[in-house]
C-alpha cells in the first residue's frame, strides 16, 4: 500500500525547500518540513542530518535556504528538535562551516555570518541548551566570533 500522498519524506521536502532552481523562498515547503519533523518519531534526528548536509553545500543559495529552514524550525518546533540541534553531533557540523580548520576557508561569507548569528541567537533564546553556549564560547575563544 503506497504511503498516502501527503506523507512526502523529509528528504524530498528539504530538497524542494532548498532547490537551487527556486526563484524565491518556498515557505510552504519550509513549513511542511518543520511540521513533518515534529511528527515523525525519528524526525528531529533525520532533519538535523539532512540540514547539516545542505548547510555545508558549496552552493551559497542552497546553504542559505537550509539555514532559513533551520531558523524557522527552531522557532516553530518543540523541545525534541531543540535538544537535537543542541547536541555536539549537529553543532560540530555548523562549526565545520565556520572554522578555517575545516570548511571555513571555502564557505561563502554570508553562510558563515548566518551560522554565527543563529548560534548567538540560540544562546539567548535557549539558555537551557548548554552545549550551544559551549560551542559559542569555543568559537569566541578561537577568534572565529569577533568580540
Amino acid at each position: 500500500m503506497a504511503a498516502p500522498p501527503d506523507a512526502e519524506s523529509l528528504e524530498s521536502r528539504i530538497n524542494r525547500a532548498t532547490n537551487p532552481l527556486n526563484r524565491d523562498t518556498d515557505w510552504s515547503s519550509i513549513h511542511a518540513f518543520c511540521d513533518q519533523l515534529n511528527n515523525d518519531l525519528e524526525g528531529p534526528q533525520l532533519a538535523t542530518r539532512l540540514l547539516a548536509h545542505k548547510i555545508q553545500s558549496p552552493q551559497e543559495w542552497e546553504a542559505m535556504q537550509a539555514l532559513l529552514v533551520l531558523e524557522t524550525c527552531m522557532k516553530n518546533c518543540g523541545k525534541r528538535f531543540h535538544s537535537e540541534v543542541g547536541k555536539f553531533r549537529f553543532l560540530n557540523e555548523l562549526i565545520k562551516v565556520v572554522s578555517p580548520k575545516y570548511l571555513g576557508s571555502r564557505s561563502p561569507e554570508p553562510v558563515k555570518k548566518k551560522v554565527l548569528e543563529l548560534i548567538y541567537s540560540w544562546t539567548l533564546g535557549l539558555p537551557e541548551e548548554a552545549k550551544i553556549s559551549d560551542a559559542y564560547q569555543m568559537l569566541k575563544k578561537q577568534g572565529i566570533i569577533k568580540q
Partner: peptide
Amino acid sequence: HNGKIEFHDDSDEDLLE
C-alpha cells in the same frame, strides 16, 4: 556497582576544537 545513580544522557559526540 558503586550504588551511585549515574544519569546517562543519550549519546553525543565531543565538541570540535
